[in-house]
Amino acid sequence: MFLKVALLVLRKDFAIEVRSREILFTTLFFALSCVLVFSFAFVKEGEPLEDAASGILWIAIAFAGTLALGRTFERERYGETLRALLLAPAPRPAIYVGKLIGIVLLLVVAEALLVPLVALLFQATLFARPLLLSGLLLAGTIGFCAVGTLFAAMLVRARTRDVMLPILLYPITVPVIIAGVRGTSALLQATPDEAAATMWIALLVCFDVVFVTLALWTFEPLMTE
Protein backbone atom coordinates (compact mmCIF):
# COMPACT_ATOMS: atom_id res chain seq x y z
CA MET A 1 0.00 0.00 0.00
CA PHE A 2 2.79 2.41 0.97
CA LEU A 3 4.78 1.85 -2.20
CA LYS A 4 1.63 1.84 -4.36
CA VAL A 5 0.60 5.27 -3.09
CA ALA A 6 4.13 6.65 -3.49
CA LEU A 7 4.20 5.41 -7.09
CA LEU A 8 0.71 6.81 -7.77
CA VAL A 9 1.84 10.26 -6.60
CA LEU A 10 5.02 9.95 -8.66
CA ARG A 11 3.07 8.86 -11.77
CA LYS A 12 0.62 11.73 -11.33
CA ASP A 13 3.48 14.28 -11.03
CA PHE A 14 5.11 12.75 -14.10
CA ALA A 15 1.86 12.97 -16.09
CA ILE A 16 1.49 16.66 -15.15
CA GLU A 17 5.11 17.37 -16.09
CA VAL A 18 4.74 15.57 -19.44
CA ARG A 19 1.78 17.83 -20.25
CA SER A 20 3.26 21.11 -19.00
CA ARG A 21 7.07 20.56 -19.05
CA GLU A 22 7.13 23.67 -16.88
CA ILE A 23 9.32 22.55 -13.97
CA LEU A 24 11.80 20.58 -16.09
CA PHE A 25 12.45 23.47 -18.49
CA THR A 26 12.63 26.19 -15.83
CA THR A 27 14.92 24.10 -13.62
CA LEU A 28 17.24 23.22 -16.50
CA PHE A 29 17.32 26.78 -17.79
CA PHE A 30 18.06 28.16 -14.34
CA ALA A 31 20.78 25.59 -13.59
CA LEU A 32 22.51 26.09 -16.93
CA SER A 33 22.30 29.89 -16.63
CA CYS A 34 23.82 29.68 -13.17
CA VAL A 35 26.84 27.69 -14.43
CA LEU A 36 27.29 30.03 -17.42
CA VAL A 37 27.30 33.13 -15.21
CA PHE A 38 29.86 31.56 -12.87
CA SER A 39 32.02 30.59 -15.84
CA PHE A 40 32.23 34.26 -16.87
CA ALA A 41 33.38 35.17 -13.36
CA PHE A 42 35.76 32.31 -12.62
CA VAL A 43 37.34 31.49 -15.99
CA LYS A 44 39.94 34.07 -17.00
CA GLU A 45 41.71 33.74 -20.36
CA GLY A 46 40.70 30.12 -20.62
CA GLU A 47 42.05 29.24 -17.18
CA PRO A 48 39.47 28.35 -14.54
CA LEU A 49 39.96 29.21 -10.88
CA GLU A 50 41.39 26.24 -9.01
CA ASP A 51 38.78 24.06 -7.25
CA ALA A 52 35.90 26.27 -8.46
CA ALA A 53 34.19 23.52 -10.48
CA SER A 54 32.97 21.42 -7.55
CA GLY A 55 31.53 24.42 -5.69
CA ILE A 56 29.77 25.75 -8.78
CA LEU A 57 28.32 22.33 -9.61
CA TRP A 58 26.78 21.99 -6.15
CA ILE A 59 25.58 25.60 -5.99
CA ALA A 60 23.79 25.10 -9.31
CA ILE A 61 22.23 21.88 -7.99
CA ALA A 62 21.10 23.57 -4.76
CA PHE A 63 19.64 26.63 -6.53
CA ALA A 64 17.90 24.56 -9.21
CA GLY A 65 16.63 22.17 -6.55
CA THR A 66 15.11 25.01 -4.54
CA LEU A 67 13.33 26.27 -7.64
CA ALA A 68 12.01 22.77 -8.46
CA LEU A 69 10.83 22.21 -4.88
CA GLY A 70 8.95 25.49 -4.80
CA ARG A 71 7.27 24.93 -8.17
CA THR A 72 6.34 21.31 -7.42
CA PHE A 73 4.44 22.28 -4.29
CA GLU A 74 2.99 25.42 -5.88
CA ARG A 75 1.08 22.96 -8.09
CA GLU A 76 -0.33 21.26 -5.02
CA ARG A 77 -1.33 24.63 -3.56
CA TYR A 78 -3.33 25.63 -6.61
CA GLY A 79 -6.64 23.88 -6.17
CA GLU A 80 -5.54 22.78 -2.68
CA THR A 81 -4.77 19.33 -4.00
CA LEU A 82 -2.31 18.67 -1.18
CA ARG A 83 -5.32 18.65 1.19
CA ALA A 84 -7.01 16.11 -1.08
CA LEU A 85 -3.89 13.93 -0.93
CA LEU A 86 -3.77 14.22 2.86
CA LEU A 87 -7.44 13.24 3.10
CA ALA A 88 -6.94 10.07 1.06
CA PRO A 89 -6.93 6.75 2.96
CA ALA A 90 -3.23 6.34 2.36
CA PRO A 91 -0.20 6.45 4.63
CA ARG A 92 0.68 10.15 4.58
CA PRO A 93 4.46 9.51 4.55
CA ALA A 94 3.88 7.66 1.25
CA ILE A 95 2.79 10.98 -0.27
CA TYR A 96 6.08 12.48 0.94
CA VAL A 97 8.07 9.61 -0.59
CA GLY A 98 6.27 9.97 -3.93
CA LYS A 99 7.03 13.70 -4.07
CA LEU A 100 10.63 13.09 -2.95
CA ILE A 101 11.32 10.51 -5.68
CA GLY A 102 9.86 12.86 -8.32
CA ILE A 103 12.08 15.78 -7.28
CA VAL A 104 15.17 13.58 -7.03
CA LEU A 105 14.55 12.25 -10.56
CA LEU A 106 14.08 15.78 -11.86
CA LEU A 107 17.38 16.90 -10.34
CA VAL A 108 19.16 13.80 -11.66
CA VAL A 109 18.08 14.89 -15.17
CA ALA A 110 19.39 18.40 -14.44
CA GLU A 111 22.68 16.94 -13.17
CA ALA A 112 23.05 14.87 -16.35
CA LEU A 113 23.31 18.18 -18.22
CA LEU A 114 25.14 20.16 -15.54
CA VAL A 115 28.07 17.76 -15.11
CA PRO A 116 29.23 17.79 -18.77
CA LEU A 117 28.73 21.58 -18.92
CA VAL A 118 30.81 22.18 -15.77
CA ALA A 119 33.43 19.72 -17.02
CA LEU A 120 33.62 21.58 -20.33
CA LEU A 121 33.61 25.17 -19.06
CA PHE A 122 35.91 24.58 -16.07
CA GLN A 123 38.13 21.94 -17.69
CA ALA A 124 37.30 19.65 -14.78
CA THR A 125 38.02 15.91 -14.94
CA LEU A 126 34.56 15.05 -13.63
CA PHE A 127 34.38 11.84 -15.62
CA ALA A 128 37.64 10.39 -14.26
CA ARG A 129 35.78 8.37 -11.60
CA PRO A 130 32.17 8.21 -12.90
CA LEU A 131 30.88 5.75 -10.30
CA LEU A 132 32.17 7.74 -7.35
CA LEU A 133 30.84 10.99 -8.83
CA SER A 134 27.44 9.35 -9.43
CA GLY A 135 27.43 8.15 -5.82
CA LEU A 136 28.22 11.64 -4.53
CA LEU A 137 25.59 13.29 -6.71
CA LEU A 138 22.85 10.78 -5.91
CA ALA A 139 23.50 10.71 -2.15
CA GLY A 140 23.78 14.51 -2.02
CA THR A 141 20.66 15.04 -4.09
CA ILE A 142 18.61 12.68 -1.91
CA GLY A 143 19.78 14.47 1.26
CA PHE A 144 19.01 17.91 -0.13
CA CYS A 145 15.61 16.87 -1.47
CA ALA A 146 14.67 14.94 1.68
CA VAL A 147 14.80 18.13 3.74
CA GLY A 148 13.53 20.34 0.92
CA THR A 149 10.45 18.21 0.22
CA LEU A 150 9.44 18.30 3.89
CA PHE A 151 9.89 22.06 4.17
CA ALA A 152 8.22 22.82 0.85
CA ALA A 153 5.18 20.73 1.90
CA MET A 154 5.07 22.45 5.29
CA LEU A 155 5.21 25.89 3.70
CA VAL A 156 2.50 25.30 1.10
CA ARG A 157 -0.04 27.33 3.08
CA ALA A 158 2.42 30.04 4.20
CA ARG A 159 2.19 33.36 2.39
CA THR A 160 5.97 33.86 2.70
CA ARG A 161 6.80 30.38 1.37
CA ASP A 162 9.05 31.62 -1.46
CA VAL A 163 11.25 33.49 1.01
CA MET A 164 11.04 30.98 3.83
CA LEU A 165 12.01 27.89 1.82
CA PRO A 166 15.64 28.89 1.14
CA ILE A 167 15.96 30.47 4.60
CA LEU A 168 15.00 27.17 6.25
CA LEU A 169 16.51 24.83 3.70
CA TYR A 170 20.06 26.09 3.18
CA PRO A 171 21.25 26.18 6.82
CA ILE A 172 20.03 22.63 7.43
CA THR A 173 21.45 21.24 4.19
CA VAL A 174 24.84 22.93 4.61
CA PRO A 175 26.42 19.60 5.71
CA VAL A 176 25.11 17.97 2.51
CA ILE A 177 26.49 20.76 0.30
CA ILE A 178 29.86 20.72 2.12
CA ALA A 179 30.13 16.93 1.81
CA GLY A 180 29.19 17.12 -1.86
CA VAL A 181 31.71 19.88 -2.62
CA ARG A 182 34.55 18.26 -0.68
CA GLY A 183 33.86 14.83 -2.16
CA THR A 184 33.76 16.23 -5.70
CA SER A 185 36.95 18.24 -5.06
CA ALA A 186 38.68 15.05 -3.96
CA LEU A 187 37.84 13.53 -7.35
CA LEU A 188 39.09 16.60 -9.24
CA GLN A 189 42.62 16.48 -7.86
CA ALA A 190 45.49 15.60 -10.19
CA THR A 191 45.46 12.18 -8.58
CA PRO A 192 41.83 11.53 -7.57
CA ASP A 193 41.55 10.83 -3.85
CA GLU A 194 39.17 7.88 -3.94
CA ALA A 195 39.40 7.20 -0.20
CA ALA A 196 38.30 10.75 0.64
CA ALA A 197 35.49 10.64 -1.92
CA THR A 198 34.26 7.32 -0.49
CA MET A 199 34.34 8.77 3.01
CA TRP A 200 32.22 11.77 1.90
CA ILE A 201 29.76 9.43 0.17
CA ALA A 202 29.44 7.42 3.38
CA LEU A 203 28.81 10.63 5.31
CA LEU A 204 26.16 11.70 2.78
CA VAL A 205 24.44 8.31 3.08
CA CYS A 206 24.36 8.83 6.87
CA PHE A 207 22.77 12.27 6.34
CA ASP A 208 20.24 10.71 3.95
CA VAL A 209 19.23 8.04 6.47
CA VAL A 210 18.82 10.63 9.24
CA PHE A 211 16.97 13.21 7.09
CA VAL A 212 14.61 10.71 5.42
CA THR A 213 13.83 9.00 8.73
CA LEU A 214 13.10 12.33 10.43
CA ALA A 215 10.97 13.48 7.51
CA LEU A 216 8.92 10.26 7.45
CA TRP A 217 8.43 10.55 11.19
CA THR A 218 7.38 14.20 11.21
CA PHE A 219 5.48 14.53 7.92
CA GLU A 220 2.06 13.51 9.25
CA PRO A 221 2.01 15.72 12.40
CA LEU A 222 3.54 18.66 10.52
CA MET A 223 0.92 18.46 7.78
CA THR A 224 -2.06 18.44 10.16
CA GLU A 225 -3.26 22.01 10.57
Binding site: K12, I16, R19, S20, R75, G79, E80, T81, R83, A84
Partner: peptide, 10 residues
Amino acid sequence: AHEPHLYPEL
Protein backbone atom coordinates in the same frame (compact mmCIF):
# COMPACT_ATOMS: atom_id res chain seq x y z
CA ALA B 1 -13.88 22.27 -0.23
CA HIS B 2 -13.68 25.87 -1.45
CA GLU B 3 -11.05 24.86 -3.99
CA PRO B 4 -11.84 21.98 -6.37
CA HIS B 5 -8.99 19.62 -5.36
CA LEU B 6 -8.30 18.95 -9.05
CA TYR B 7 -5.12 19.20 -11.13
CA PRO B 8 -5.83 21.67 -13.95
CA GLU B 9 -3.03 20.26 -16.15
CA LEU B 10 -4.63 16.80 -16.18
